[in-house]
C-alpha cells in the first residue's frame, strides 16, 4: 500500500455487480496511471471471488467477509471502511452516488474528518493535489475543485466513466476487523419489489416522459394520448412520481428505471444528471422545455423551446394524421 493508492467501494446487490463499480474502477485506474499506486476494490459482506474476474482493473480485492456486513447497514459499513482507511491512508476512496453511497460517503468523511466531493464526473492528478470536476446545482453548473487532504472521499456520478472491462487477475485479500462489528440501530428487514400489473416501461420502444412541466395531474392524460398514438407508454421524472401522479414503476432515472427505447420524448423535464442516468441509452431523444438552457437539450437529438401543454395536443393530432 502507498499514499498514491486509490480504493473503490464495490456494490453487489443479490448476485449482481452494480455497473457503477466498474465505472469507479475506470476512474481509479485513470488516476493511478498518472501517479503510480495500486487500485483496490473493497467488497463488504461476501467472499468476492465470484466477481474477481469482472474486476480485473483492480490490483487487489479487499474482502471483509463478516456476517454483520451480509446485509447493508450504514453503521457497520462505515465502521469497516473507517478502520480500513485509517490503517491504509489511501489517496482517495471512490464511492458511487447510489442509495448506499449517499449514506456511506458523507458518514465516512465525517468520521475521518476527510474532504468529500459529491457528484464527481472527472478526477485527475493536479501536481500533488486532486483536481475534481463535479456536477453542481442540479447539473446547471460544473465546479472545478482542488482537494488537498487524504483520503479524499469522492462520490462519483454514475455514467461519468466508461466501465473498466479489462481482464485481469486481482489478488484477493481477506481482512478481519480489529473489533467485532455489533448490530446497530439500523437493520435491514426485507426487499420490497415493485407491484406487478403496471406497465413495464423497460420493455417499450416508445416512451413519453413527463416532468414538472406537466404542472398538474389532470394534464397527464395529454401525454397518455400521445403515447397511445405512438403505441408507447408514459413515464416520468421524479417530481411527477413524488406528487403521486404516476406510480414509482414509471420513474426513469437514478432511483427509478433505466430505459433504452427507440424513441424517448422528454417533455417538461429539465434533465438533471439523475434523470439522464436512466435515459441516455435511448436511440432518439426529443426534448421540449420552455427553458432553452435546460440540460436535457444537451443529450437530446431534437429540441423545441415550447410549453408542452400547448404542444401536446398539436403533436398528438399530427401523429394521428400521419397514421391516417
Amino acid at each position: 500500500m502507498s499514499a498514491q493508492d486509490v480504493l473503490v467501494l464495490a456494490e453487489i446487490r443479490g448476485e449482481t455487480l452494480d455497473a457503477v463499480t466498474l465505472e469507479l474502477l475506470a476512474a481509479a485506474r485513470g488516476l493511478v496511471s498518472a501517479t503510480g499506486g495500486n487500485v483496490g476494490v473493497i467488497v463488504l459482506g461476501r467472499d468476492g471471488a465470484g466477481h474477481a474476474s469482472s474486476m480485473g482493473a483492480a490490483d487487489r480485492i479487499i474482502v471483509f467477509d463478516d456476517p454483520q456486513l451480509s446485509t447493508y447497514a450504514p453503521e457497520t459499513y462505515v465502521a469497516a471502511l473507517g478502520e480500513l482507511l485509517a490503517a491504509e491512508r489511501p489517496r482517495a476512496l471512490l464511492i458511487g452516488a447510489t442509495s448506499i453511497g449517499w449514506d456511506v460517503a458523507p458518514l465516512v468523511a465525517a468520521r475521518l474528518d476527510a474532504p468529500l466531493v459529491i457528484g464527481c464526473i472527472r478526477i485527475m492528478d493536479g501536481e500533488g493535489d486532486l483536481r475534481v470536476t463535479a456536477s453542481f446545482y442540479g447539473g446547471k453548473m460544473l465546479a472545478e475543485c482542488r482537494v488537498t487532504g487524504a483520503p479524499a472521499i469522492l462520490m462519483v456520478q454514475p455514467g461519468s466513466f466508461r466501465p473498466a472491462s479489462e481482464p485481469g487477475k486481482a489478488e484477493i485479500e481477506i481482512r478481519t476487523l480489529a473489533a467485532p462489528l455489533q448490530p446497530g440501530a439500523i437493520a435491514f428487514e426485507q426487499w420490497i419489489l415493485p407491484q406487478a400489473g403496471d406497465v413495464d416501461i423497460t420493455q417499450h420502444d416508445v416512451l413519453v416522459a413527463i416532468g414538472r412541466g406537466i404542472q398538474q395531474k389532470d394534464n397527464v392524460e395529454l401525454a397518455e394520448s400521445l403515447a397511445q398514438a405512438l403505441g408507447g407508454a408514459v413515464c416520468a421524472s421524479r417530481p411527477v412520481v413524488d406528487q403521486g401522479w404516476l406510480p414509482a414503476t414509471r420513474q426513469v432515472g437514478k432511483s427509478g428505471m433505466t430505459v433504452k427505447p427507440k424513441l424517448y420524448f422528454a417533455l417538461g423535464i429539465s434533465g438533471a444528471p439523475e434523470h439522464q442516468e436512466g435515459m441516455k441509452g435511448a436511440d432518439l431523444v426529443i426534448a421540449v422545455n420552455t427553458d432553452p438552457k435546460a440540460p436535457i437539450f444537451d443529450v437530446a437529438h431534437y429540441g423545441a423551446e415550447l410549453d408542452i401543454l400547448d404542444l401536446l395536443p398539436a403533436l398528438t393530432e399530427a401523429i394521428e394524421a400521419k397514421r391516417g
Binding site: L142, E144, A287, F297, A300
Partner: peptide
C-alpha cells in the same frame, strides 16, 4: 476542505437540433 477553483456552466456535448416555429 475542498476549494472551488472555477465554476462554469457545462459545455453541451452535442446540443440538440432546435426546432422552431409555432406549436403546429
Amino acid at each position: 476542505l475542498v476549494s472551488v477553483v472555477r465554476l462554469v456552466p457545462p459545455a453541451p456535448a452535442a446540443r440538440a437540433e432546435m426546432l422552431s416555429g409555432s406549436e403546429a
